[in-house]
Computed example of a mutant assay.
Amino acid sequence: MASFMREIFGDISGSGAAHKGPGPAKEGDDLAHLDARLAGAVRSGSDGTGIVMLQPAECVVWDGNPRDVPRLTPEGCRSLIESIATEGGNRIPVLVRRAGEGAEIPYELLVGSRRRFAVDWLNHNGRPELRLSALIVDVSDEEAFRIADLENRERADISEIDRARSYQAAVDRFYGGVQSKMAQALSLSNSQLSRLLSLAQLPEDVVEAFPARTELRVRHSEVLTPLLRRPELRAAIIDAAIAIAAQQQQRTANKQPLIAAAAVLSKLRQAAVSEPSKPEPVTLMAGGTKVGVMRHGRGGVVDVSLSVGGDVDVESLLAELGRRLREAQREGMTRAA
Rank of each mutant, 00 (worst) to 15 (best):
A2H: 14
M5P: 03
F9M: 10
D11H: 13
I12M: 10
A18F: 12
H19M: 06
H19I: 05
H19Y: 15
K20F: 13
P24R: 11
K26A: 12
K26W: 10
E27Y: 12
L31Y: 10
H33Q: 12
D35H: 11
A36S: 12
A39R: 14
A41R: 10
R43Q: 13
G48I: 09
T49H: 12
V52K: 12
V60S: 11
V61L: 14
V61P: 08
D63I: 10
D68P: 06
V69Q: 08
P70H: 08
L72F: 01
P74L: 02
L80A: 01
S83T: 14
S83A: 14
S83Q: 14
S83W: 05
I84H: 01
G88P: 02
R91E: 09
I92P: 07
I92T: 15
V96F: 09
R97D: 05
G102E: 02
G102I: 03
Y107M: 03
Y107Q: 06
E108R: 14
L110Q: 08
G112Y: 07
R114K: 14
F117V: 07
D120Y: 04
N123Q: 12
E129N: 08
L130V: 02
L132N: 04
S133Q: 15
I136N: 02
D138M: 04
V139H: 03
S140M: 03
A144V: 06
I147K: 02
L150G: 12
E151Q: 15
N152T: 08
R155F: 09
I158Y: 02
I158T: 13
A164Q: 00
Q168R: 15
G177P: 06
V178L: 12
Q179K: 14
S180A: 13
Q184N: 10
Q184T: 11
Q184G: 08
A185Q: 04
L186F: 03
S191Y: 09
Q192T: 15
S194C: 03
R195Q: 14
L196I: 02
A200D: 03
P203Y: 07
E204I: 11
D205A: 15
E215G: 07
R217V: 00
V218A: 03
V218M: 01
P226N: 06
R230E: 11
A235F: 10
I238H: 05
A240I: 00
I242E: 10
T252V: 11
N254K: 13
A261M: 00
A263H: 08
L265P: 00
L265V: 00
L265G: 02
K267A: 14
A272F: 01
S274Y: 07
E275M: 07
P276H: 00
K278A: 09
V291S: 07
G292I: 08
G300C: 02
V301G: 00
D303A: 15
L306C: 05
S307E: 15
G309L: 12
V312S: 06
L317Q: 03
L318G: 08
G322T: 15
R323M: 09
L325H: 08
M333P: 03
